[in-house]
Design a protein around this nucleic acid. Structure first.
Ligand SMILES: NC(=O)c1ccc[n+]([C@@H]2O[C@H](COP(=O)([O-])OP(=O)(O)OC[C@H]3O[C@@H](n4cnc5c(N)ncnc54)[C@H](O)[C@@H]3O)[C@@H](O)[C@H]2O)c1
Ligand SMILES: NC(=O)c1ccc[n+]([C@@H]2O[C@H](COP(=O)([O-])OP(=O)(O)OC[C@H]3O[C@@H](n4cnc5c(N)ncnc54)[C@H](O)[C@@H]3O)[C@@H](O)[C@H]2O)c1
Lengths: 286, 286
DNA sequence: CAATCTTTGTGCACGCGTTCACAAAGACAT
DNA sequence: ATGTCTTTGTGAACGCGTGCACAAAGATTG
C-alpha cells in the first residue's frame, strides 16, 4: 500500500495525493476552530461537515497520514492539529518575500492570516524607487536591488509575485535564480520555471469568468424548461462564422429576472479596448 | 464529432467539462495577446505553449465548443476569441458587488483586470459607517443597508466577499437572499449556500500551505535516500494520543539544499518524511 | 488533378479522485 | 465477559481528466 516508490517519476509526494494535500489546510482550519473551543474529539462526520467535504473523503485523506482516529469515538482534535501541521510543514517558520507592493501586495502584507500559520514576511520588495523606504504593514519596503541578498540572508524559499503581468516572468526568473523554489503568482501570466520549482497561481479574473460561465448557463436554462433533458444538439454552432461584431451585446434567454444589466445606459464599450489590463504575450520560449 | 452523443452526463453543463471551463479563460488570455499583435491564426501547439498546457488537451477542450479550427492551418484567432468569449458569457456585461472594502476589497476594486473582461463594479459595500461615502477606485462606498437595493437596481448576480471571516456567512446569506447566485469568497471560511448558487473561493493561506508542504518535501528529499516510512513506535503512536508537545522553533537546516534543479530530470531520491519524526517541535500560533 | 505536407479532431487507455458500503475495532453498558 | 452501539479505515466500483497516437481533412505544391 504505502509503496508507490519504485522508479516512478510520480508526482505523488510520499504517497499523499495532491488532492488530499490541498484539503489538509481546510481540515486544519476547522480543527483549529474546534481546538479554540476546547472540543476534545470530533467524528469524521462532524469535521467533514465543518470543512465542507464528504466524510468518506475525509477519512480516506486522514488514512494517508496514518491511523490517528479511534473507532467509536472519532479523532483527537489536538493531536490531529499537530499531525496535519507537521505534515504540511507548518511546525517550522517559513520566511516569505512579497515582490510588488502595489494595491494587492500591500493588502497581502497586511494580511493577518499570513503570520498566523507560520509564514513570516521576511521582506517587501518593489522596483519603484518611490516605494523604497516606505513602511507597509510595519515593514520597510526594499528596492529590488536587494532581492537576492534578502533571499540569501533569510534563507527564503517561498516568494509571492504581485507585480504587473509584464514584470512577472522577469521577477520570477530572478527569484528562482536567487534560490526560491516555491512561488505564489498573482499576476495574470503563465510563468515558466525550471523543474523543481513549484508555482501556484491565484487569478481573480479567471475565477470571475468561471462564475460568469455558470451564471450564463443558469440564465439560459430557465428559458427552455422542457428542452432541458434532450441534447440541444449543435443549435448554437449554426451561428454565422466570420468575424465577431465586436460591440453587440447579445442578450440571451433572459426570462427570469437575472439578466445582465449591460443595457443600462451606454455600453462603456467593452472590447476593442486596450488590453492594458496587463496581458503580456507569453513570448515563445523554446 | 457526430459520434452518438448519448445521454447527458447530468453534471456536465451543456457538455462542457468543468476542467475545460476552467481553462477557457487561460486560452482567452493568450488569444487576446495574439490578437493584439494582429496574429491571424495559431496552431494548437503554439497556443498550448502560450497557455501552458498540453496541445492535445487544448484541442480536446476546443472540440467541446465545436470545430472551429482548420486542419493544416490552425485556429483563427479573432474568431476563437469571440467563440470563447461567448461561451464564457463575456459578450455581456456582468455587474458585480464587492462587500467588505478593507485592504483586500479596496485592492480588488482598483484591479483593472476586472473591467477589461466585462465585469463592472456596480457597488462597493461596507458595514463600517466610517467607510460609507469614501471614494475607492472612483466609486463611492455604500453602507451595507443599501445592499439589497443595489443588487435589485442593477440586477447584480455576482458578489465578491472580502469581509473578515466572521462576517462572511451572514453577508453571504444576505447576498443570496437578495438574488445573488454566484459568489467569489476571499474570506477563509466554508460558506454554505442553497442549491443553484455557485461559490468559488480564493484562499491565500491555503495556497501557501500547499507550497509549504511541497517545500518541506523537497528539503527532506535531499537528506535521506531509502528509509521505510514505518513509524517506529507503532504502539506508541497509535496508543496514546497525548497532546502534542510544544517547543521551540527550528530553523530551517540545510542552507545549501537550494536549487535541486540540476538533478531535475531523474529519479531524484524521493521519500522524504521529515527526518526527525519523533520529536518535531510544534508551533501553532492561534 | 495528384502528391505531399500540416494540423486538427478524437478513439482509446490509463491513472487519479470520489464515493459507497461494510467489516473490524474499540467504547460503553450490563 | 459478553453484547451492543458507534465510528473508523479501506476495498472496490465508477467517472472524470489527461495524453498518446493516428486517421482524416484541408492546404499547398508541382
Ligand atoms: N489588485 C487586485 O485585486 C488584483 C487581483 C488579481 C490580480 N492582480 C494582479 O496582481 C498584480 C498587482 O496588482 P496591483 O493592483 O497591486 O498593481 P499595482 O500597479 O498597484 O502594483 C504593482 C506594484 O509592482 C511594482 N513593480 C512593478 N514592476 C516591478 C518589478 N519588476 N519588480 C518589483 N516590483 C515591481 C510597482 O512598482 C507597483 O508598486 C497585477 O499583475 C494584477 O493583475 C491584482
Ligand atoms: N488582505 C489579504 O491579502 C487577504 C488575503 C487572503 C484573504 N483575505 C481575507 O479577506 C478578508 C478581508 O481581508 P482584509 O485584509 O481586507 O480585511 P480588512 O479588515 O482590511 O477589511 C475588512 C472590511 O470588511 C468590512 N466589514 C466587516 N464586516 C462587514 C459586514 N458584515 N458587511 C460588510 N462589510 C464588513 C470592514 O468594515 C472592513 O472594511 C478577510 O476575511 C481575510 O481573511 C485577505
Amino acid at each position: 500500500m504505502a509503496t508507490g516508490r519504485t522508479h516512478r517519476p510520480a508526482n505523488r509526494s510520499r504517497g499523499i495525493p495532491e488532492a488530499t494535500v490541498a484539503r489538509l489546510p481546510l481540515y486544519l482550519r476547522a480543527l483549529t476552530a474546534l481546538s479554540e473551543r476546547s472540543v476534545p474529539t470530533v467524528s469524521s462526520e462532524e469535521l467533514a461537515t465543518a470543512a465542507g467535504v464528504n466524510s468518506a473523503k475525509l477519512r480516506k485523506d486522514f488514512s494517508y497520514l496514518g491511523s490517528y482516529g479511534t473507532r467509536g469515538v472519532g479523532y483527537d482534535v489536538e493531536y490531529l492539529v499537530y499531525q496535519i501541521s507537521r505534515e504540511l510543514g507548518l511546525t517550522q517558520d517559513w520566511p516569505v518575500v512579497i515582490v510588488g507592493i502595489g494595491n494587492l501586495g500591500a493588502a497581502l502584507a497586511n494580511y493577518g492570516g499570513f503570520a498566523s500559520r507560520g509564514f513570516r514576511v521576511a521582506s517587501l520588495i518593489d522596483a519603484d524607487p518611490e516605494m523604497a523606504g516606505k513602511v507597509v504593514a510595519g515593514i520597510e519596503v526594499q528596492h529590488s536591488d536587494g532581492l537576492e541578498q534578502v533571499i540569501e540572508d533569510n534563507d527564503v524559499s517561498i516568494g509571492v509575485i504581485a507585480t504587473p503581468a509584464a514584470s512577472a516572468q522577469p521577477v520570477c526568473d530572478r527569484l528562482v535564480a536567487a534560490g526560491i523554489t516555491s512561488i505564489l503568482n498573482f499576476a495574470p501570466t503563465v510563468l515558466s520555471v525550471p523543474d523543481g520549482v513549484d508555482v501556484r497561481k491565484v487569478d481573480l479574473s479567471i475565477e470571475l469568468q468561471i462564475l460568469a460561465f455558470h451564471e450564463q448557463r443558469k440564465a439560459g436554462e430557465l428559458s427552455d424548461e422542457d428542452a432541458e433533458e434532450l441534447p440541444q444538439g449543435a443549435g448554437e454552432v449554426t451561428a454565422s462564422p466570420v468575424a465577431p461584431p465586436a460591440a453587440s451585446v447579445t442578450k440571451r434567454g433572459s426570462g427570469s429576472g437575472k439578466s445582465p444589466a449591460g443595457a443600462s445606459g451606454g455600453t462603456s464599450g467593452r472590447n476593442g479596448e486596450p488590453g492594458s489590463d496587463g496581458d503580456v504575450p507569453a513570448v515563445m520560449p523554446a
